[in-house]
Amino acid sequence: MTFYQFLDYLTYLSPALLLTGIGIGMYRYKSLALSHKMLLLYIGVALCTDLSSRLYGHLFGNNLIFIIMFSLLELIIFTILYQFCFFEKKSRTLFSLTFVASGFIVWELFSLRTIAPQQFQSYSKVMDAFVIILFALAYFFQKVGKYKTTQKEELRLNAAILLFFSLHLLFFLPINFLINVSSGLKFYFWMANLVVTLIFYAFINWEIWKNG
């Protein structure tokens, strides 16, 4: 088995993990807090995007548009998660920023809809990850001095979100390079991204299990 085949098989772990998370979430749904119901929704959306992008890619070859669609959904879910579940006081600035970022992603969704992979350079994922990073940092600033009264699980989840989206932002920034460069080097990057994503999904599953 070559490295590329191994990488290809490894990608199937993503829907498997997401499906497991949904199973856990549905089993424990009644006892889940709103924040964890949002995480369940997030992995549900991720699973739908994963499966439909695989199908779309199989049928039409280019499924890059799903990155933009998923960015929009991800941004909306994390905005609700932070503004309604985590923040003590809703942040108007971050609401406005979410609105601007959503507008930008919708604009990119239409402008890059038919573009060839060679010209595909989307900043939607970067924008989405950047706003989520700001949410995570704002949450930490709100909690300064209140760590004793804050649930450790919430702080840990926020730290994981901050770490994951910081890496994701840096990874998806040179997306055009990672799609088009002919060198086999790019597969190591995709592999790293896959591993980080799988760890994050596993962490979310564990959080849902513990919360339920």
């Binding site: 595909f120 350079q121 970067v126 950047f130 990073i133 910081s166 840096l170 920034l173 055009n176 088009n180």
Partner: peptide, 19 residues
């Protein structure tokens, strides 16, 4: 391809440094 354009690379660097 976009990644070969120096302007794009410059933008990536600026964004990465800012973040």
């Amino acid at each position: 391809e976009k990644w070969l354009d120096p302007k794009t690379i410059m933008l990536w660097i600026i964004i990465a440094i800012t973040v």
